[in-house]
Amino acid sequence: MKPFLAMLTRDMKLATRIGGDSLTVLLFYIMTGAIMPFAIGPDKDQLAQLGPAIIWISALLSLLLALDRLFRMDHEDGSLLAMRQASLPLEMIVVAKICAHWVTTALPLIVATPVLAILLNLEIDQTLRVIFTLLVGTPALICFGAIGAAVTVSIKRGGLIAPILILPLSIPTLIFGVSAVSSGAIANAQDAALLFLAGFTLLSLVFTPFAAALALKMAAE
């Protein structure tokens, strides 16, 4: 347990220090969300209707921003190689890094969501529902991102390669995330969408550690 916690706290420290990703992601999220009302115009009803989708798109884009770097820094400075000798399997190291990444990037973003909700004129119950779907759905986004980041870890200046790889995988999460908030034509569609969202998250949590660890091992060859 101690090696796992050491990995977790170290990544959390790195993300919150200067040059870390926490603040970048948070600011990008608020910025993209905040400029939407200016582009869409002052129609309050329209804003409220588009609100959940805007929040989800902003969250997805800002998470993509930092996901690319999940393993790259450690790969470049030799830490990843040294981590493979740890008394912890690489799969568990991936789990620790995913947890730390979720806490330092997705969680601040979820906490900041009410700010965006006010700007987008969302009702309180809808705001709470967006926050809940983000809580359920963002771990899946981080997991898919981790696989993309692991596959592209050895590509120097990969640029957009990882996001291009991650984006198609993230689309189902986006679809069900938004439809779990927005009122659709079909009754109970929201709850079904929420269950699908939870299913994606659970599935990705199970497969990602193995897939990402395998990709990292192959990248080191």
Binding site: P3, A6, M7, L14, G19, D77, S79, A82
Partner: peptide, 26 residues
């Protein structure tokens, strides 16, 4: 294993760097 690149995190202190490895390696 110590390779070409030393595996040092520049935004952690000297002590934090070593404490991390100590804990990770048991």
């Amino acid at each position: 294993i110590v390779g070409h690149v030393p595996g040092v995190k520049t935004t952690l202190t000297v002590k934090e760097n070593l404490t991390f490895w100590a804990q990770l390696y048991g």
